[in-house]
């Protein structure tokens, strides 16, 4: 069996999977993210972002800096969900979000 080389450890995305995604036309990092699941695990790209972008750039034959990294949404780290409601009693408008 060919040995798997992981780019994204959270979602088990291998280098081969990125190539396959590219082959099928998911060439932008944002599309690659949705197709393979890289960036979407609990680490939110902390482990994989630079490597995915670098691979994507190599495959497309462009400079890595011309690619836009996928949007990074909160929370940045896993947060116990009950905490998010902690400020609700204070009547701050953030709690309503």
């Amino acid at each position: 069996m060919k040995k798997k080389a992981f780019v994204c450890f959270c979602m088990d995305v291998t280098e081969a999977a990125l190539r396959e995604a590219f082959r099928q036309g998911f060439r932008e990092p944002e599309l690659m993210k949705r197709f393979t699941g890289a960036f979407m695990g609990p680490c939110q790209g902390k482990t994989c972002a630079a490597n995915v972008l670098q691979r994507a750039a190599e495959m497309a034959g462009v400079d890595a800096s011309s690619l836009r990294a996928p949007t990074c949404r909160p929370p940045l780290v896993p947060v116990p969900i009950g905490l998010l409601a902690a400020g609700a009693d204070e009547g701050s408008d953030d709690a309503a979000h």
């Binding site: 630079a50 972008l53 800096s65 011309s66 690619l67 990294a69 949007t71 990074c72 949404r73 940045l76």
Partner: peptide, 14 residues
Amino acid sequence: FQATSQGNFLMEGA
């Protein structure tokens, strides 16, 4: 990224 909701802050370059 979050605070400004724009830009590519990961890769240096153009």
